[in-house]
Computed example of a mutant assay.
Amino acid sequence: MSTTIYKADASPPARTVLMIADLLGIKYNGYDINPILREQDTPDMTKKNPMRTIPFIEDDGFCLGDSHAIILYLLDKYGKPEHSYLYPTDKQKRATINQRLFFDCGILFPYLRTIMALTYTGRLTELSKSMIRNIESGYRMLDTYLSDSMYLADDVMTLADLSVFTTMSTLHGLVPIDSTKYPKLMNWFINMSEKEICKKINQPGAEQHVAGLNALMENNKINQKSKL
Rank of each mutant, 00 (worst) to 15 (best):
F102M: 13
D90Y: 03
E82K: 11
I54P: 11
T121A: 10
L124D: 11
L75N: 03
A14P: 05
L101I: 15
I26G: 13
F56I: 05
G122R: 04
D32W: 06
K93M: 12
G106Y: 07
P50W: 09
L108Q: 09
S130K: 15
L118Y: 12
D60R: 00
T16G: 01
L124C: 03
S84I: 04
Q92H: 14
D59V: 03
E58D: 13
P110R: 05
H83A: 03
D22C: 14
P35C: 10
R113K: 12
D32Q: 12
P110T: 11
T42K: 05
D66F: 06
I71S: 01
L23E: 15
Y73L: 09
Y73G: 02
M131G: 00
D66K: 11
F109M: 08
L74Y: 10
S130R: 14
D32K: 12
F102S: 11
L108V: 02
G106L: 10
T89I: 14
D32M: 07
R52C: 15
M51A: 10
L118E: 15
T125W: 01
Y111P: 01
E58K: 04
T42D: 09
I71G: 01
T42I: 09
L64M: 14
A95Q: 12
D44L: 10
Q92T: 13
M131H: 14
L74R: 04
I20S: 08
G25C: 14
L75C: 04
L108E: 01
P43T: 00
E58M: 04
S130W: 11
M116A: 12
L101Y: 07
R15F: 08
L18N: 08
M51K: 11
Y85T: 02
I115W: 05
G30T: 07
Q99L: 13
G65L: 03
C63W: 01
P110K: 10
N98K: 06
P110I: 11
R100H: 07
F103V: 02
I33F: 07
H68R: 14
C105D: 08
K48F: 04
F109K: 07
T53W: 01
L127K: 06
P35E: 10
Y31K: 15
H68C: 05
D41E: 13
L124Q: 13
R100E: 07
I97C: 05
D90H: 02
L23W: 08
L127P: 00
F62A: 03
M19L: 07
G61R: 11
P43H: 06
L124Y: 02
Q92R: 15
S84Q: 11
C63E: 07
E58N: 11
P81C: 01
L108D: 01
H83F: 01
L86G: 04
A14C: 15
Q92C: 03
K47P: 00
K93P: 01
